[in-house]
C-alpha cells in the first residue's frame, strides 16, 4: 500500500445534550487518534439551535490538536430557514464543507474543495468524475454499496485525486423522511415533537413483532439496529483502494474505538482481538458488514467464510 489510510470521525447524528456534545469533542480533540472530524447538524434542523454556538469553539480545539475539521450540511433541506442556513454555511465558512445534499452545489463557490457525505448518491464513476470536477476531494461512499463497486470507485477516485471513504463503524443511516418517527412513536407530530429524540443517545430500537432487533429510529432518520463494523475487514478494504474509514459517533468510548481502528490499520492488532475489544465496549450491540460482504446489509460475515467479489 502507498499512503497511510486515514480515520474520519463523522458528525454526531443523534440529539445529544449540548454539554455532552461539547465534552465529547473536547475529549476527541485531546485524545482520539482520528485525522479529521466533521461537525454540525445533519439530521434535523430543529436540533441546531441547541449547540450551533459551540461549533466554532470545538473546531478550534480540534484544529489545535492537529485535526482537519469540516462542517457538515443537512441531509434533507426543505424549509426556507434551512436553505438560508445552508447558504450561509457554504458562503461564510472558512472551514471546508461536507456536502450531504446536492442543494449545496448551488451555493458552493466553483473550485472550492469539499467532502461528499455518505448520503449523497455516488454510485458510479460518472458521478464521481463530475463531483471531482467541482472540487470534491474526499467521498464517503453510500453504505449500501458492495465491495466490488467500492473497488471500482476507489480506483477511479485514486486517478481523480479523491480519497475514497467507507462507513466503517456505527449504526448505518438507511433512510430520511419528512416525517419524524420519534415524534410519531410518542404520539406527537414533528412540529410539536418536544425533542423526544433526545431521550435516545444512540437511537430508539425498532423490533419486529417476533421480537427480533431490526432498525433504530433517530428522529426523521431510520438507521440499522446493527452497528456496522469493518474492523475485521480493513486489509480487504485497503486492497480495494479505500483510503479513509469513517467512524460514526455513538454514546460509547469513541476514543477507544478510534484506537482499535488505528492499531489495526498500523498492523499492531489482530482482527480477532480487535473485534473482541470492540464487543466489550458495546455489550448490547450486534455488528454487521453485510452491505460490503454479504447478501444483505444486516449480516455479519467473518473473514473465513467471506467471498470477496
Amino acid at each position: 500500500m502507498t499512503a497511510r489510510a486515514s480515520l474520519t470521525l463523522g458528525p454526531v447524528l443523534f440529539n445529544w445534550p449540548a454539554d455532552s456534545w461539547s465534552d465529547f469533542y473536547a475529549r476527541i480533540a485531546d485524545e482520539a487518534e482520528v485525522d479529521r472530524v466533521f461537525l454540525g447538524e445533519v439530521v434535523c434542523s430543529k436540533r441546531s439551535p441547541f449547540y450551533e454556538d459551540r461549533i466554532l469553539e470545538a473546531a478550534e480545539r480540534l484544529q489545535k490538536a492537529g485535526k482537519e475539521v469540516y462542517l457538515s450540511s443537512l441531509v434533507l433541506v426543505t424549509l426556507p430557514r434551512e436553505r438560508k442556513a445552508m447558504k450561509e454555511l457554504a458562503e461564510g465558512a472558512e472551514l471546508p464543507l461536507e456536502v450531504n445534499d446536492l442543494t449545496m452545489m448551488r451555493y458552493l463557490e466553483a473550485g472550492k474543495a469539499f467532502a461528499v457525505g455518505p448520503l449523497v448518491n455516488v454510485y458510479n464513476e460518472g458521478t464521481l468524475a463530475w463531483l471531482a470536477g467541482r472540487g470534491a476531494r474526499l467521498v464517503c461512499l453510500p453504505p449500501e454499496l458492495p465491495i466490488g463497486s467500492v473497488a471500482s470507485l476507489a480506483a477511479a477516485g485514486g486517478k481523480a485525486g479523491i480519497d475514497t471513504e467507507v462507513w466503517a463503524f456505527g449504526r448505518v443511516p438507511l433512510a430520511i423522511s419528512g416525517r419524524c418517527y420519534h415524534a410519531r412513536i410518542h404520539g406527537l407530530s414533528k412540529d410539536s415533537c418536544q425533542f423526544v429524540c433526545g431521550e435516545d443517545a444512540d437511537g430508539l430500537k425498532v423490533e419486529t413483532m417476533d421480537g427480533e432487533d431490526f432498525l433504530a429510529v433517530n428522529g426523521v432518520q431510520t438507521m440499522s439496529f446493527t452497528h456496522a463494523s469493518v474492523l475485521g475487514d480493513l486489509e480487504a478494504l485497503e486492497a480495494a483502494g479505500v483510503t479513509s474509514f469513517r467512524l460514526s459517533p455513538h454514546d460509547c468510548d469513541m476514543v477507544e474505538v478510534a484506537r482499535l481502528f488505528r492499531a489495526r490499520l498500523d498492523g499492531r492488532l489482530e482482527a480477532g482481538a480487535a473485534m473482541e475489544r470492540l464487543g466489550a465496549l458495546l455489550p448490547e450491540a450486534r455488528f454487521s458488514n453485510g452491505f460490503l460482504f454479504a447478501d444483505y446489509g444486516a449480516e455479519m460475515v467473518e473473514k473465513a467464510e467471506r467471498q470477496v467479489a
Binding site: 448520503l119 448518491n121 449500501e144 454499496l145 438507511l174 430520511i176 440499522s224 452491505f291 444483505y296 446489509g297
Partner: peptide, 21 residues
C-alpha cells in the same frame, strides 16, 4: 413512499436489493 426516495436503503438492509441499485 414515506422516505425520501432515492435515499432509502431499508430494502437493501433486509434483502440486499434496493431501489437505487
Amino acid at each position: 413512499c414515506v422516505m425520501a426516495e432515492g435515499r432509502c436503503a431499508l430494502s437493501a438492509y433486509a434483502t440486499g436489493r434496493s431501489p437505487n441499485m
